[in-house]
Amino acid sequence: MALVYQRTQGLLDVPFHYCPGCTHGIVHKLVAEVLVELGLLDSTVGVSPVGCTYNNYEYFACDMQQAAHGRAPAVATGIKRVLPDATVFTYQGDGDLAAIGTAEIVHAAARGEKITTIFVNNAIYGMTSGQMAPTTLLGQVTTTSPFGRDAATQGYPINVCEMLATLRGAVYVERVSVTSIKGIRAAKKAIRKAFLVQKKGLGFSLVEVLSTCPTNWGKSPVESLQWVDSAMTAQYPLGVFRGADLEVET
């Protein structure tokens, strides 16, 4: 029988610990597949964040470093400056990247560090049980915004792609979602482009992936996907914010 599909070699044969309906697993798979398809896996060092994916070093087959909360872009900078020919990526959630690690991501992008960031935005702190994140939508109920996020006292969501796209060092910035087959294919294309940008040494690349958290949103997996497509995409429009014209496949 012809083999038409198999588990990517970029992931170790270890079961994920993620909740039912969480899209981290899809994003992990896409990153791993791209690294294998580009022949980069053996020369890649990934950086794990703090949050639900703190231990994704147990899943990715490449070398991995685990970073303190928010510091992954600085850790990745250190790795890349030692190993300029390696592929270095960070995998970060919205609490890690857009709250405690804001300085690190902004300055890694501003320096044009030749690293790739996979930014998984699910509008909430998942690991610590559903607190308000910088990316939480206005009116969204979380354990620390029990009456819904109120702009008067809790401010407004941060649109990371739009913010980073103002920096010259951030040469490729795109937001995707993984709520449909079409979306997943587009996300993989974006992740591939981000790693090719790094391979060509063009500068900093980031792909934001709108993701789900059924457990902390209090929604079913299907409702969660629908909420990403409606509410989240209204606040965080999909698209390329920097580098739409970059040609990296040649």
Binding site: Q65, A67, I79, V82, L83, A86, E104, H107
Partner: peptide, 23 residues
Amino acid sequence: VFVQAESEIAAISMVYGAAGAGA
């Protein structure tokens, strides 16, 4: 390599990454 980091926290985190990469 000389990098002027954005903060002391970033600088020590860069050391973490670089030391972890064997430097």
